[in-house]
Write a protein that binds this DNA or RNA. Sequence first.
DNA 1: CGGTATCCCCTAAGATACTG
DNA 2: CAGTATCTTAGGGGATACCG
Lengths: 164, 164
Amino acid sequence: MEDGTSESLGYCADTGVDDDVLQWDQRADCEVRQILDRIADKWSLLVIALLDKRSLRFTELRRAIDGVSQRMLARTLRHLERDGLVSRTVHPTVPPRVDYALTPMGATLHTTIRALVDWTEEHQNAIAAARAAYDRRVAAEQEAAEREEAERLAVARAVLPVRG
Amino acid sequence: MEDGTSESLGYCADTGVDDDVLQWDQRADCEVRQILDRIADKWSLLVIALLDKRSLRFTELRRAIDGVSQRMLARTLRHLERDGLVSRTVHPTVPPRVDYALTPMGATLHTTIRALVDWTEEHQNAIAAARAAYDRRVAAEQEAAEREEAERLAVARAVLPVRG
DNA sequence: CGGTATCCCCTAAGATACTG
DNA sequence: CAGTATCTTAGGGGATACCG
C-alpha cells in the first residue's frame, strides 16, 4: 500500500466563515477538492478518454498514452478502480490478460470531461494568441527597463569624475 | 522569467498513427494536454471559481483560498493572465491596488469547470462508498494472503528438523 | 499592498530491475 | 503480460527576506 486517503479528511462542513463568495470549499482538506485533483489528473483524464470507446488491456493503454510510465499507469488505474470509475477484469489465461473498462459512473464522468476538453480545443488558438501577446508585452517592458537602466548608468558616468 | 511554454510545442498534427481510438491527442507535447494541465491545476480552478462572482484583489484571493502561498498565488495569477483568462488591473494609488477579474474567455471556462465540480459533488458519496468497498476488499485479500503464508511456514517447520 | 528573489525541502514521477 | 519494489532526481511548493 503506497498511500491512500486515510488521513483526517472527512466531509468539509461549512465552517461558517463570513465570506459567501466561497461557493466551493477552498480548504485544502476538502473532499471535493481532493476528488477533483484526482480526476483532473493528467493521466486519469486520458485513461477515461480512451476507455470510453471500448475496454482496453494494460499494454494497449500504455502504448496509446505517449509518455506514461508503467508505474504511473498502474497507479492511475488503481486509483480509478478504487474510486469506482474503472473496472478491472482479470482473465486467468496464460499469458495473463487484464481488461479495463469504464463503470457506469465512469461513463457519466466522461461526458463532463469531454466538455472540458472541447472547451480547450475550441479556445486553444485564442490562448496561444493571448500568450504570444503577453510575451511580447513582457519582452517590450523588459527592453524598456534595460534602456532606462543603461541611460542612468551613462548619466552617472558623465557626472562622476573618472577615478583610476 | 521562471519558465514559459517556449519549448518546441506547436500544434499537434495527426501523426497518422494506426489507432483511431485516440480521439484526443495523447502525445506529451500536445498543446491541448498542456493547457488542460494548467487549467485543471488546483489553484487555477479555485481562482477561476472565486473570480466568477466579482473581481478581487490579490490579498482577498489570498485570504479566500486556504493554504495558498503568496508565491503560488502570484504564479497562478500570472499564468492565468498570460493565457488570457484573467485580467490584471493596477490602480496607481497608494497603497497600490491590483484587481483581478475573469476575461470573457475566462467566464466561459468557468461554466465548464462548474460542470466538473457539480459532477464531483453529485458523486462524492458514491466515490466514498466505492473507496470503502475497495479498501475492504484489499484488506480481506491481504489478510487471506497472510494466513496462507503463516500456514506455509507452519508446514515447513513441521517437516524440517529443528536446527539449533 | 503587491509583489519578486532566494533558499530549501519533500514528494511525485521516471528509470530500472525483479516476480507471478 | 501485468504488474510490484527500489532507487534517484526534478521541480512543486513553503518560508523567508527584501523592493516599489
